[in-house]
Amino acid sequence: MSNIAYMRVSSSDLSIENQRQVLEKYNIYKYFIDDAVSGKSLNGRIGLDDLLSYVREGDFVYVVALDRLARNQTDQEVISAELSLKGVTVVPLDLFDMLGLNEVPTEGVLKMVWDVINVVTRYKAEQERKDMLRRQKEGIKRAKLAGKYKGTVPKYRQNSPIKKNRYIYSEVIRRLEKREPIKGIAECLGISRNTVKRIRDR
């Protein structure tokens, strides 16, 4: 079990040493650094890649702020999932400062805080997905009322401009009428069982 530190600054105008001065009092065993590397994505962050490969179960990863690890929800989910699977706990010092804590809490509290962060992250991501689907559904409904929504045109249909697709459609219908099994139809025509079912349901 070791205290590991991750430091990142996004431009060469900023000094990584400011973060090191904050972190060095926490008995850091090893530092991983991304100097002048943007946090907008996970691409090109060699220090972070090395950190994720190095850490082991029971390690604590110290950061001066959680946004040093990730700047967006999706990346935070990815990093959090990988660290949690390895049994690693992140120690975001900015959060404890915001809570008015002068010292880093005990090991048990640290793990509890990290678990709460992960739960909140997953909840926020799920709510964002639900909101997106709701807005999409409402948009489709408005478009239908305005007569502008046409929906997705099926690939396999009777009037498809592609001869092969017309053939597959008619063969599926013919074989279904003969009560051939869906799995056999799909394998024979080189399409998925779900495609057969969609043609059947239409």
Rank of each mutant, 00 (worst) to 15 (best):
M1F: 10
S2Q: 15
Y6H: 10
R8E: 05
R8K: 06
R8V: 03
V9I: 07
S10F: 06
S12Q: 13
I16C: 00
I16N: 01
Q19S: 02
R20D: 01
Q21V: 10
V22S: 10
E24T: 06
K25D: 04
Y26A: 04
Y29S: 15
K30A: 05
K30M: 07
F32N: 04
I33N: 01
I33D: 05
D34T: 00
V37G: 02
S38E: 10
G39C: 05
K40Y: 13
K40S: 14
S41L: 08
S41R: 05
L42T: 08
G44D: 12
G44K: 11
R45H: 09
I46A: 08
I46C: 04
L48I: 03
D50W: 01
D50Y: 06
L52T: 07
S53W: 02
Y54V: 00
V55C: 14
R56L: 09
E57K: 10
E57M: 04
E57R: 11
F60D: 02
Y62A: 02
A65D: 15
D67H: 09
R68S: 03
L69D: 03
A70H: 09
A70W: 10
R71G: 09
N72Y: 06
Q73C: 10
E77L: 15
E77N: 08
E77V: 13
V78L: 15
I79W: 15
S80F: 04
S80V: 09
E82L: 15
L83G: 05
L83K: 09
V88L: 12
V90N: 00
V90L: 00
V91D: 01
P92W: 02
P92H: 07
D94E: 14
F96A: 03
F96M: 08
M98T: 04
G100H: 02
G100C: 04
N102P: 00
E103D: 12
V104I: 11
G108C: 01
V109N: 03
L110V: 01
K111N: 02
M112L: 03
M112E: 00
V113H: 00
W114E: 00
I117F: 06
K124H: 13
Q127R: 06
D131P: 02
R134L: 13
R134Y: 07
R134S: 12
R135Y: 13
K137W: 02
K137Q: 13
K141N: 10
K141S: 12
K141E: 15
R142G: 03
L145V: 12
L145C: 03
L145P: 00
A146H: 07
G147D: 02
G147A: 03
G147E: 02
K148T: 04
K148R: 15
K148E: 13
Y149F: 15
K150Q: 12
G151M: 10
V153I: 15
K155V: 05
Y156W: 08
R157G: 08
R157L: 09
S160V: 14
P161N: 09
I162W: 13
K164R: 15
R174G: 14
K178V: 00
K178D: 06
P181Y: 10
I182G: 12
G184R: 14
A186N: 07
A186T: 14
L189C: 08
S192W: 03
S192G: 13
S192C: 07
N194Y: 07
T195N: 11
V196R: 11
V196W: 11
V196E: 11
K197Q: 12
R198D: 07
I199F: 02
R200G: 04
D201R: 12
R202D: 10
R202L: 05
